Simulated scan of single mutants.
Amino acid sequence: MKIVVVGGTGLIGSQVVALVRDRGHEAVAASPSTGVDTVTGQGLAQVLDGADVVVDVSNSPSFDTEPALDFFTRSARHLSEAEKEAGVRHHVTLSIVGVDRVPDYGYYRAKVAQEEAVRDSGVPFSIVRATQFFEFVAPVMDMSTENGRVRLPSTRLRPMASADVASAVTETALGEPSYGVRDIAGPEVHRLDRLGEITLAVRPDGRGVVTDETAGLFAGMPDGALIGDDTAHRAATRYEDWLRHGQPPSRATDRSGH
């Protein structure tokens, strides 16, 4: 089976490529660095030649509404056209838990538009919605730091390790199209300000956390929108265990983190 991973050089995509290969299948990473640009359509026909499955874990370079909307809708359109031409039998898109419950957040509206384009494409599909990645906590903290204080709202999240996201996406790609949505989430609900405190307790750097309901990307989110419901699959990795024994949090912003 040939699986093309769009965004295959990023945080999630590179792990999906490795997992697919470990399962004995052909995995091809597609990204601008490999000559494939979904926004313009460049390289799509070539990379999709002979592909059975396409996994789209690419992300907009901007969180702003219009650039994100343009990226996701144009990419989805070019992908679906190329997939139908190549005879791709399964398209898998990575999205965000609660994405349709936050209409005032432009980036989420753009992701909803992407989901709608996938559903309307005519290509058999599966959508995997994940909660925020552990790897995203440190960059969010950095963006909210001022004078040694990390200002974070008490927004509730159920974050998960990117490795668990990649595993679920790979499992979906190797299965049959669901024509629906599967939610995946971490094992525990945390307030974002508490996640900041946990991070600095395990990896102290002199900063402190201040609860500020107006600060940062997740301020004003509807309560409970980002944690999923009882139908969401629960991953096993806990944030504190990941901090102590897993991948250390990046200090560079990775926009794959939802």
Rank of each mutant, 00 (worst) to 15 (best):
M1T: 14
K2A: 04
K2W: 02
I3Q: 02
V5L: 02
V5E: 03
V6P: 08
G7T: 07
G7E: 03
G7F: 07
L11P: 05
L11H: 08
S14A: 13
V17G: 00
A18F: 06
L19I: 12
R21D: 01
R21A: 12
D22N: 09
R23F: 06
H25W: 07
H25K: 00
A27K: 07
V28F: 03
A29W: 09
S31H: 04
P32W: 09
S33G: 05
T34Q: 06
D37K: 06
G41P: 10
G43M: 02
G43V: 06
L48M: 11
L48Y: 03
G50R: 06
D52S: 13
V54I: 12
D56P: 11
V57N: 03
S58A: 15
S60R: 09
D64P: 05
D64T: 13
T65G: 04
F72P: 04
L79Y: 07
K84H: 09
E85D: 14
A86T: 07
G87S: 07
V88I: 06
H91W: 15
S95C: 09
S95G: 12
I96D: 05
G98M: 10
G98P: 13
V99Q: 06
D100I: 04
D100Y: 00
R101K: 15
V102H: 02
V102K: 00
P103R: 03
D104E: 13
Y107Q: 08
Y107P: 14
Y108E: 04
R109W: 05
A110R: 05
A113F: 01
Q114P: 00
Q114V: 00
R119D: 03
R119V: 13
G122K: 06
G122T: 03
S126E: 01
S126Q: 00
Q132Y: 12
F133I: 10
F134N: 02
E135Q: 15
F136Q: 11
V137T: 14
V137P: 12
V140R: 07
S144L: 08
S144Q: 15
T145I: 10
R149M: 10
R151D: 01
S154C: 05
S154N: 11
R156V: 15
R158D: 04
M160T: 11
A163P: 00
A168D: 05
A168M: 04
A168W: 00
E171T: 14
T172E: 05
L174T: 10
G175R: 01
Y179R: 13
V181Q: 02
P187K: 10
V189K: 03
H190S: 06
R191G: 15
L192S: 11
L195H: 12
E197I: 12
L200M: 02
L200Q: 03
R203D: 15
R203A: 14
P204F: 06
P204D: 05
D205P: 11
R207T: 13
G208T: 15
G208W: 02
T214D: 14
A215Q: 10
G216W: 08
G216K: 08
A219T: 14
G220A: 08
G220F: 07
G224D: 11
L226V: 12
A235M: 10
A235W: 03
T237L: 12
T237Y: 01
R238E: 14
R238W: 02
Y239E: 07
E240S: 11
D241C: 01
D241M: 00
W242T: 11
H245K: 08
H245I: 01
H245F: 13
Q247E: 13
Q247Y: 08
Q247S: 13
Q247A: 12
P248L: 09
S250N: 13
S250L: 09
A252F: 14
R255Y: 14
G257C: 14
H258D: 04
